Simulated assay, not measured.
Amino acid sequence: MFQANWTSVTDFFFLGFTHYPKFEIIIFVLCLLMYLITLLCNIILISISILDSYLHIPMYFFLSNFSFLDICYTSSALTPMLANFVTGKNSISFSGCAAQMYFSLAMGSTESVLLSTMAYDRYVAICNPLRYSSIVNRRICLEIASGSWVTGCLIALVETMPVLQLSLCGNNVINHFTCEILAILKLVCVDTSMVEFLMLVISVLLLPMPVLLICISYVFILSNILRISSVDGRSKAFSICAAHLTVIVSFYGTALSTYLKPSAVDSQEKDKFMALVYAGLTPMLNPIIYSLQNKEVKGAVKKLFIGNLLVLS
């Protein structure tokens, strides 16, 4: 069988959703709407976090980082797919595929680390409110955020580099809409057990471990919330934690079902739709979930738009 390394491949071709010709245009429209809403909502959340001085607190600093991550993550996965659909090419260059695979992994890994650190922020805010400003200060926030980004980018490098060294079987057709690492491994004709073991170890460290730490922190958080005598205080604490938990379930649930399923299970078609959820739907819903019942965010958005209208008038 013909073998070739990555450098001898000039282009890859995506199958995308060609198996569902009747639904291709619907999927394209839905992806375009998800991408535009993701951009709009996350840009608004970042803007108000920067412009409104009342939101210059750790929670919104982390949310701004989270929103920027979502924009990068969605852009790396959906933008090439949308562009290919419009042009009808359905292809990507070798360097473009390598970059897309790396950035998707880097953004996903960083998001996993950042979500777990946001649980620590909620833990300190609710369990040690009097010491919150001294424990989670500006320096600590910058260290946590930069540490999450550096960790995510390094992990993605560790995953991507071994895959780029593997030999392909002369097949450059990817059964996916993006250069997803699991779909790329399907094109490899040499033994991938070492790469798969490395991915398994990383997936366990990035998925079940953070989920376990988050669950432990929320046991303490919920026990402290139940001790709050004020009904308003309990309600506010519950709403903030519920928003974070909803995002956690959405992100880790889809990631766990994709990256920790048994290797014998061949679910490439299912993986495409799961990828649409964690690359398109979840980043779109994140800012809505966080801000839907948040009075501070609603007030900041109103001030931002009213101020702009006054300036324009």
Rank of each mutant, 00 (worst) to 15 (best):
T10Q: 13
M34Q: 11
V9P: 02
I27V: 08
T38M: 05
I26P: 01
H19A: 07
D11C: 09
P21T: 07
K22P: 01
L32T: 05
I27Q: 00
F17V: 08
M34K: 04
Y35E: 12
F12P: 04
F14N: 12
L15T: 13
P21N: 06
G16Q: 11
M34S: 10
Y35L: 13
L32S: 03
F28Q: 02
V9F: 02
T18S: 15
L32W: 00
Y35K: 09
F23K: 03
F13H: 15
L32V: 06
L33S: 12
V9R: 00
G16P: 11
L32H: 04
L32D: 00
F12D: 08
K22V: 08
F13Y: 15
V29Y: 02
L36N: 05
L36T: 11
K22L: 14
P21R: 07
P21F: 04
T18P: 00
I27L: 01
D11M: 09
F28D: 01
D11E: 15
L33K: 06
L15K: 10
T18M: 10
V9W: 04
E24W: 03
L30T: 02
L33M: 14
E24G: 00
V29L: 04
L32R: 05
M34I: 00
T10G: 13
L30N: 01
F14M: 15
T10A: 09
Y20C: 05
Y35G: 06
H19N: 10
F28C: 00
E24S: 03
H19F: 11
E24F: 01
F23Y: 13
L30R: 03
I25P: 08
L33G: 10
K22M: 09
E24L: 02
M34H: 05
F28T: 02
L30E: 02
L32N: 01
C31T: 07
F13G: 14
L15R: 10
I26E: 02
L15S: 09
L15I: 09
T18G: 08
F14Y: 15
T38C: 03
F17W: 13
P21V: 09
L30F: 06
F13P: 01
T10N: 14
E24A: 00
H19P: 01
F23C: 04
V29P: 01
F17K: 10
Y20Q: 13
D11W: 11
T18I: 07
T10M: 11
T38D: 06
I37P: 03
